[in-house]
Structure formats: structure tokens, C-alpha cells
Design a protein around this nucleic acid. Structure first.
Lengths: 193, 193
DNA sequence: ACTGCTATATATAAGAT
DNA sequence: TATCTTATATATAGCAG
């Protein structure tokens, strides 16, 4: 982009590519930092060089980076672009959409359910082995949400005495229980604890 | 950085901050793309705006983004710091791990189950409404894994006659899945064609 | 909020050392 | 290979509509 306007395509020349790589990574990281500072937002960049094994990551603080990434992974809305991928077929698409909607609906209802489950686990009323396989996914999700919350509090308070056990009581407001979709068609009569 | 040299600090003015945010996100994503293309490396950027809920992510293809992220999460150093995060408690950790193991175990078993489910759906033996809510998550996952495979083939072959129906037979080899905590997405360890 | 504009600040491709 | 230099290409802050 300077003495010559570089075409936006893979640089075949290995040497030149490596040089460009280093320069641009530096620039990208700088821009990432700036955005984060100027606008006070969470940004995370992960860059894999073909040369050195270790990826360049920003924020360099792995805990921070992991937090941001986890946040991303929990976002359901990201699936949007995932759907574009379905030019292939339409069956999968509609299926996908419907499934997603149901999933979201279900998720809200289940959250409180999972709260109770966790409470039972912590009070030893229940062991992990007794949890139906069917519930593990959601359980995991809720637990991770809690961890994020906890960590957030640590960051905010920046104090040692963060709430622990009681943190598990008041996380989710717990929406309604209107799972009215159509789960009565077929059995779905597990999970009645 | 233009008419005035902006100080590298949080922009208090909300309006100005939002404007800067938009502009810079655009720039950052562009730079990210360019680095990726020019140097042929894996790059992933996750940007959380305070305004819109959905994070800006590059690559926009979530599957791709997830792949890069997973790669990052597999790095041992990352797990290490992730663990430090859990100084907080140990209950969650063991619980997390156990749940993960069970999840992985379950996943492999369920995969074939889902294959059959999809077959039933496609052959109209079953309608989506008849699928128990409990199964939707895994169904979605398997379907997305298939789509990824399909797209991958399209990219590789760059030909029109990509396998369709039969693609649904031989998807996941069921390889290792030693991932970080909560990437409930898809690992692309196919390649058995 | 969303253009487009423009003057400057930055980023960076090629060289040079 | 790393750093410095420099000519250009880009990015973008502040405005205007």
C-alpha cells in the first residue's frame, strides 16, 4: 500500500509475505488496542502466524481474552451468518431456523431449572452422575454464565472478598415457563425433578 | 487522528464515541481481512459494541471463527490461565470437567442417533414438531457439522456437482474432541473422503 | 443515525543499511 | 533478520447536509 499499491491477494513471495505479516500484525494489534481504549469495548484478536507456533493474541492477558471469547461463544445471534451458508439446501435451513427458535425459547425456561439443579448438586442432594445426559449441555452453559458473572464481579470490585456460594442464588431472573411450543406431541416427559 | 490528534483514552462524549466506534470497527475488520488474505493466516477478531447486542466478528462465518478460536483454546498456556481464573472455587471446576467428559461421551453416541433422525426428517417419516425439544440442540449441531463438510467440499472441489444426499452418510469420523471447556460448536476433524 | 467530504494522522511497501 | 527511511496509500476526526 505504499510505493506500490498492493493487490489484495496472497503474497506468493515468502520473504515479502513474512515481512508484511510482521508489519501488519503490529498494526492490527495497535488498532485493536486503540479501539478498545477509545470506545471502552471488549475486543479480542487472535492471529496465527504460519511461522511461529504461538498465536498473537490481544488482549495479551489470556484470562481477559478467554473471557471475551467465551462471551462470543454464548451468543446465539451469531448464528445468522451461519445460516447464509445454507445456500446448499433449504430443508436444513428451515430446520435450522425452527430449531433455533425452539432452542431459544427452551433456553429461557430451562435456565431456572438449571439453577435448581446446581443447587441440588452443591447441596449434595444430587450427584453429577444422576443428572440426565439430556441436561448436561444446558447445565454447562449456565455454569459458565455464572463463572463469567463471578469473574466480572471480581474485576469490578477488584477486591478479594467476592461473593461465592450466594452468587449461585440470584443470577438469572428466570423468565416465564411458557414452553408452549409443542413438546407435548412426543414424549418429552423426562426432567420432572 | 486527523483534524485533531486524538488522545488515546476513553472518549467520554457518547455520540463521538459511537461514531468513532463504527468507523474504527470498519477499519479493523478491513485490516483483519487484509492480513488474512495477504499472508494466508488464520485471524479472528471479536468486537463487542456497547450499543448493538451482537458482536462484530470476523470471519463472519461462525464456523470458521469458531475453528480459529478453538485452535486458540487448545493452546495449553491458555487453559492454564483459564484455570487460574478458577482460584475462585474448585467445585465449579470439577463439575465442569466431569460434565465435559460426559458431554463428549454422549456426543459421539448421539451423533448416529441424530443421523437417523435427520434421515427420518428428510424422508418425511417424522416432522420437526415431533422431535423432542431435548434433541434439538444436538440435531442442530450435527446438521451444522454436515453443512460445514459440504461447504468445505465445495471449496475444495470448486465444482458444481457436490455430493448431497450421500454426504449425509459419512460425516464425522468421531475423532478426538479434547477441547476447552465450553465450545459446544463443531470441530472440523473430518477428512475421510 | 447515515451519508459524503477533506485535511491530517497513520500505516506500510520498498529500499537502504 | 532487524531496523530505519521515505514516498505513498489508507484511515479517520471533525463537519456539513
Amino acid at each position: 500500500m505504499v510505493r506500490k499499491k498492493v493487490k489484495l491477494e496472497y503474497i506468493e513471495n515468502g520473504k515479502a509475505r513474512r515481512v508484511t505479516y510482521k508489519k501488519r500484525v503490529k498494526g492490527l494489534v495497535k488498532k485493536t488496542q486503540e479501539l478498545s481504549v477509545l470506545c471502552g469495548v471488549d475486543v479480542c484478536a487472535i492471529i496465527y502466524g504460519p511461522h511461529d507456533q504461538a498465536p498473537v493474541v490481544w488482549p495479551s492477558d489470556k484470562v481477559e481474552a478467554t473471557r471475551i471469547i467465551s462471551k462470543f461463544k454464548r451468543k446465539p445471534e451469531v448464528d445468522q451468518s451461519e445460516r447464509q451458508l445454507n445456500q446448499q439446501s433449504f430443508l436444513q435451513q428451515s430446520l435450522n431456523k425452527a430449531a433455533e427458535k425452539l432452542l431459544n425459547l427452551k433456553r429461557r425456561t430451562r435456565e431456572t431449572e438449571m439453577e435448581n439443579l446446581i443447587t441440588d448438586l452443591m447441596t449434595k442432594k444430587l450427584t453429577l452422575e444422576q443428572v440426565p445426559n439430556c441436561d448436561l449441555g444446558d447445565l454447562l452453559r449456565v455454569i459458565n454464565a455464572k463463572l463469567t458473572l463471578i469473574e466480572h464481579r471480581i474485576n469490578v470490585n477488584n477486591v478479594g472478598h467476592v461473593a461465592t456460594a450466594n452468587t449461585y442464588q440470584n443470577v438469572n431472573g428466570g423468565g416465564g415457563s411458557s414452553n408452549g411450543v409443542n413438546d407435548n406431541v412426543i414424549s418429552d416427559n423426562h426432567r420432572s425433578t
